[in-house]
Design a binder for these strands. Structure first.
Lengths: 193, 193
DNA sequence: CTATTGATATGATGCAGATCATAATTTAAG
DNA sequence: CTTAAATTATGATCTGCATCATATCAATAG
């Protein structure tokens, strides 16, 4: 991965404790952040304080490029979910990285394509499908990075914040899906068969 | 633009009449399409036949890269909105284009970033905001590429298909926004001041 | 000018999911 | 083990938007 290269080049690693805010909506982007270790979430918040999870980023991934590259202020918060070590890379350096390293450039293109895919899928769900369908879709999506016999490590509140629903609706919806045999529950945990 | 270069290189231009379908959900991607002239829309359709407009692409733009690059079947239809002339570029050729032309590569990255931005904005709206707010947001966004004194050239149905609302809700919502002085109507047309 | 089609408009009714309230259960902390 | 905090659970009520039905208006073709 590219993270070791950055460290070798002398980029400093910064510690971000859980729940700290890396940036807020309205701020002008200055860095792309590479995650040496940890986990962050990008969330938008409406006037009523309702959160929506735009994305989750984990060890080895990076975030914050789109706003930086198109020079628009952030529209989301990025918040540390687990104590993290991040490597901020300034705009000029990031652009040089893209220019000099065709592989990285290609990697970014694929990463952006994957994020677009996810967002297109979720837009279709939020625009056209009701609670149960949304839940089935997001659960199957999350299952992709979980092995059989394991359970999803997200709370009902997390599912709510990813689908635009309310906790109570998620709780009831998940139960309905279980009743219909579409998912498996084990002491409340959503299990991949 | 890159289109003339493609023509010079001998890529054939194909005609697509209005309402023809370029590709459907489930199909395996084989081309990226450059629009020499015309307009297409990417739409997802739910089981009940309700359409959601994922994006609109016009003369000079290109579409279809994400699914091609990450090797997943399309999840949307792409339908011709105005008689169009398209240049399909096969996967290998498109990858070579990216490899050999750093400018194009950078252009794609920015294009993808802009699309992500739009989708993030709309996700926040669909997940957390109600009809009036959604409409105000999409109208202001569409205003970006319209000059003052001009009107939006979209129908209420188009607005509905971009916001996940129903036509009747859009009609009522637009009227409410006009009553509140948040937008200007002229014989039903939404005017940019 | 007239007919046809598409777009906008308006009222009435129904329902999915939000909201509010409270409780049971699980997990984490001391 | 015990207590506190977080998560899951369940019922009752409220509400914004969908849905259905029908009408008016605007645009386009002949």
């Amino acid at each position: 991965m590219y993270i070791q290269q950055l460290i070798d080049k002398g980029y400093p690693v910064k510690e971000f404790p859980k729940d700290s805010i890396i940036y807020e909506p309205g701020m002008q982007p200055r860095f792309v952040y590479f995650i040496k270790k940890g986990e962050v979430r990008m969330v938008t918040v409406n006037d009523a304080g309702k959160e929506f999870i735009q994305g989750v980023f984990k060890t080895g991934q990076y975030f914050g490029e789109p706003a930086l590259l198109i020079n628009k202020p952030y529209l989301a918060y990025t918040i540390v979910s687990k104590n993290s070590e991040l490597i901020p890379v300034g705009k000029t350096d990031f652009l040089n990285l893209l220019k000099d390293d065709a592989d990285f450039s290609m990697n970014l293109i694929k990463v952006l394509s994957n994020r677009l895919f996810y967002k297109s899928m979720m837009l279709e769900e939020l625009a056209g499908e009701k609670a149960e369908h949304r839940l089935e879709t997001i659960i199957n999506y999350l299952f992709l990075e979980v092995s059989s016999g394991e359970s999803l490590k997200v709370t009902r509140q997390d599912l709510a914040d990813m689908t635009g629903l309310r906790v109570e609706t998620v709780i009831r919806g998940v139960k309905l899906l279980a009743d219909k045999g579409l998912i498996n529950l084990n002491r409340g945990k959503i299990m991949k068969v």
